[in-house]
């Protein structure tokens, strides 16, 4: 059996980004983290360090976290130069101290991008992602208007592929990992999820045009097809969705330019 509490304890040095507020300059500060159990999660280690800092009268390190099971997408540290730390397909909250060794110096910084300004220490503002969703990341279906669920069969392969894309947790690691701070993986995951389903066809062109144009307007960079995004993604969402979105976007641009437009889109009537 796994000897959970008899693991050898170890210590590391944290080099943490401290920044008092959005407008203040930040800097790296070193703190020791002692007597760590390898089964601790990275965030639990920060909890312990924070309690020690508070006891010494130092303000604790602000870091974003919530569900601590890798699904809410709140946690967001860049650890030793990789968003969400050394593990593959996991978020920071699923990173365990057993990934590090005694005496390591661990560099902890926020996800960085112009579109993700730092709020404090390791906490960033990802409202830009919500704005992209608001621009078109939906299928318009008012409550009460839905047809019978099984009236529209969807091939298992399509549903599964849509689910692969839909798993995105909106953490922003793709942006953080990209040398261009591009949000293409995030946007393409939503565009593909909805675009793969028959329900999503009516708004398909509108959606991709609106989401991409909003993404650009918010100051994200472009894609240079290096696929650092999908490698850093805690859900390992495939960059194939970016290819799909590229195609969708160009098609939609041509279609919107040449499609016949109805003369009158308003309701009216007696």
């Amino acid at each position: 059996m796994v000897a959970v509490n008899t693991q050898k304890l170890f210590s590391v040095t944290l080099r943490v980004w401290r920044q008092a507020g959005p407008a203040q300059p930040g800097k790296f500060v070193e703190y020791p983290a002692k007597d760590l159990n390898p089964n601790m999660s990275f965030l639990e280690m920060l909890d312990v360090v924070n309690d020690e800092l508070a006891a010494q009268g130092i303000e604790p390190i602000a870091f974003a976290h919530d569900c601590r099971e890798g699904i809410c997408g709140t946690c967001s540290c860049t650890i030793n130069g990789k968003p969400h730390g050394p593990g593959k397909g996991v978020a920071t909250c699923q990173t365990y101290m057993r990934s590090f060794s005694d005496g390591d110096t661990i560099v902890v910084e926020p996800f960085r991008a112009r579109a993700f300004p730092v709020i404090k220490d390791l906490v960033i503002d990802r409202a830009a992602f919500d704005k992209i969703q608001q621009a078109g990341g939906f299928i318009t279906a008012r409550a009460g208007s839905a047809p019978e669920a099984n009236a529209l069969p969807i091939a298992k392969g399509d549903a599964d592929l849509a689910m692969d894309a839909a798993q995105c947790i909106g953490c922003g690691a793709c942006v953080a990992a990209c040398k261009n701070a591009s949000a293409m993986l995030f946007v393409s995951a939503k565009v593909s999820h909805l675009g793969l389903l028959p329900q999503g066809q009516a708004e398909r062109d509108r959606r991709v045009l609106a989401m991409v144009n909003t993404m650009d307007a918010l100051g994200f960079g472009s894609c240079t097809n290096q696929y650092e995004c999908s490698a850093a993604c805690p859900k390992l969402i495939s960059h194939d969705f970016i290819a799909r979105m590229n195609r969708d976007y160009v098609k939609a641009s041509f279609r919107s330019a040449f499609k016949a437009a109805p003369a009158n889109t308003s309701g009216g009537g007696a």
């Binding site: 080099r15 980004w17 930040g26 790296f28 860049t78 030793n80 130069g81 990789k82 560099v107 910084e109 960085r112 991008a113 112009r114 579109a115 993700f116 730092v118 040398k179 261009n180 701070a181 591009s182 100051g219 994200f220 960079g221 472009s222 240079t224």
Partner: peptide, 15 residues
């Protein structure tokens, strides 16, 4: 554009 998008504060460590 991509340089601008990356922001003014570079990563301390980036792999």
């Amino acid at each position: 554009e991509s340089r601008r998008a990356r922001g003014s504060e570079p990563y301390g460590v980036k792999t």
